[in-house]
Every structure is written in C-alpha cells, then in structure tokens.
C-alpha cells in the first residue's frame, strides 16, 4: 500500500511534467494547425540555458531567465521563420519545424558537447521532504508539482477569464473575423508560440536536474508529447492535463510492478514449455510488464483514435 502511494506521487510528477510540455504544443497546434516537431527541442534548450545560467548565478536565476530566453527565441522563430513558410502550406511548415529540431540538437552538441551536463537541484531543495516506508520523496519533486499546478491554473485563468484569453480563443477559431474586429492576429499567434515554447523551456529547466540534461533528452520525450496531445484531444488544455496524468501513471505503474506474462499464461491454464529458450513463443513467455511499459502510451493512443478520434476532450473532428 505504501509503495502504491509512492507510485501515485511519482506518476503525478511525471504526468505534470509531461503536461507542461503538452500544454504549449496543443495550443500551438490548434492555432497554426501544424505540429511543432521542434517543441521538445525548446524543452532541451530550456534545460541547457538554465544549466549555463546556474553555473554563474545559481539555480533560481536560471529558473526565471531561461524560459524567457527560450520564449523570445520561440517568438522570433515564429515571426521570421514559420510565418514566412506558412504561406506555402502545412507541409513546408512541418518540414521547417523538423529541420529546426535537428538543427537545435546539433547546435547544442556543438556548444556543450555530448556528455551529460552536471545540472542539479538547488541546494535549498536538496533534501527529502518526507518518506513513505523508507522511500524518500525529494523536496525538489514537491516543488515540481507546485510549479506545474501553478502553471496550469495560471494558464486556465488567462485563457478563460481574461480579455487576452478571449481574444486568443476567438483567434483560434475565427482568425479572419477577429482580425476584422481590429485585433492584431499575427501578434497573437506570435505571442502564443512564444508563451508555448517558454512553457516547454520551463519544463526543461525543472526537469533537467531530474531526467538528465543531455543532447538526447528532446528525442526521448519528443514522440510521447505528440501521443499525449492526441489522446487528450488537440487544442484542449484539460485534455492535455488528463492525458498527461494518465500516461504518467501508466508508465510509473508499468515499471513498478513485475507482472510477468508467464504468471498470467499459467494462471489461464497454459503450461510453460520445458525448454523455453528454444521455444518459438519464448519472447511471449518471458515478457514482463516493465518491458512493455514504454509502448503502453502508444497502444492507448491507438485505442483512443479508434474509439474517439477527436481525443478524450477534443471538441472538433480532425
């Protein structure tokens, strides 16, 4: 039971972290109608910038400054890159962001090399907040939970309760009408892209010390981010939150429990073949839950697409 509780908390951390990445991506997608392949690269940039800043002024300055730099960089990419490519259609946009992802990875390797960076938690949070049955829960993870929750609530408030949020929502659905009403829609787009990438940057800043800061960190999270927003429903903030949490728990629990296919098959009534290593079904018999853990989110995506193509909380058919 204690372990179950610990896993719930761990899954929550993983899920919320994923949410910080997905919220920006899902907004950008619903706005521009194009998947930003470079989104996870902004997450990586956030971690590297924060690391670099933290070597000079400490963690907290990095936490404040790095997302802003990433956001400004993202806005500039939208203004001078994507917007120019936009008029040629979606495919060039897609290729543009794909190329950008590769470029960012190479640039990072050029400046910082290929090793893991020694980017770690601030001293002030480097203690165990509490322990459940000998499993300590680092204070830093509590901090992560609060940052992510804070971000979600702020975002929700801005999008639903403020004038800016109304304009953004309107611009997402009816850009021409909003433009005719006198709003600067390209500026709104640039702003959303900038804020979206800044959130990815913030996710990188706080995830870097836990998940590692290295050139492969974008690729590692890149595909799962897309899966999450598809499951949650493209463009839905609540959907992104729910899907992130589901995937966070799914992955945590899959890795935490050693359910073996062997036990299931024997329970169902099959007998294990004598010489398992030469048996054609060897792979099936020796399968364990932690091994298939990484593919579960993709499996879930397939089910969601079959049963509810617009995603769990998506509003529109795509």
């Amino acid at each position: 039971m204690a372990l179950f509780l610990v896993n719930i908390l761990d899954g929550l951390v993983t899920g919320l972290l994923l949410f910080m990445l997905c919220s920006g991506l899902t907004l950008i997608f619903s706005m521009m109608g194009v998947l930003n392949f470079a989104h996870a690269s902004f997450y990586m940039l956030g971690a590297y910038f924060a690391y670099q800043i933290s070597t000079i002024t400490g963690f907290w300055m990095g936490l404040l400054v790095a997302p802003i730099i990433v956001g400004v960089f993202g806005a500039a990419i939208e203004r001078y890159g994507l917007r120019r490519v936009h008029k040629y259609g979606h495919v060039p946009e897609l290729i543009f962001t794909f190329g950008l992802a590769l470029l960012i990875e190479e640039v990072i390797q050029f400046f910082w090399g290929k090793s893991q960076m020694a980017y770690s938690e601030p001293e002030a949070l480097n203690f165990a907040a509490f322990a459940i049955a000998g499993n300590s829960f680092p204070a830093y993870k509590v901090f992560m939970i609060f940052v992510a929750m804070g971000l979600f609530l702020t975002l929700l408030y801005i999008l639903t309760k403020t004038r800016i949020g109304m304009t953004i929502q309107a611009a997402l659905s009816y850009p021409e009408t909003v433009q005719n009403l006198g709003h600067n829609v390209p500026l709104v787009f640039m702003g959303v892209f900038g804020v979206g990438t800044a959130m990815a940057g913030l996710a990188g800043v706080i995830a870097g010390p836990v998940l590692g800061t290295f050139p492969g960190m974008a690729v590692q999270l890149g595909s799962i981010v897309f899966v999450t927003i598809v499951i949650g429903g493209l463009g839905s903030l609540w959907g992104a939150l729910v899907a992130s949490l589901i995937i966070g728990w799914l992955q945590t629990f899959a890795a935490a429990y050693n359910v073996a296919m062997e036990d299931i098959l024997t329970a169902v009534g099959f007998t294990k073949p004598e010489n398992i290593w030469d048996h054609p079904l060897q792979d099936l018999w020796t399968l364990t839950l932690p091994q298939i853990g990484p593919i579960l989110p993709y499996l879930l995506m397939v089910f969601v697409l079959v049963l509810r193509p617009q995603g769990l909380m998506g509003k529109r058919e795509t």
Binding site: N7, T14, N135, L211, L221, I224, A255, A256
Partner: peptide, 8 residues
Amino acid sequence: KDFTPYAR
C-alpha cells in the same frame, strides 16, 4: 525516461 519506479 524516469528511473524513479525502478528506484522504488
């Protein structure tokens, strides 16, 4: 991505 469940 995250080794925490294994660590637990």
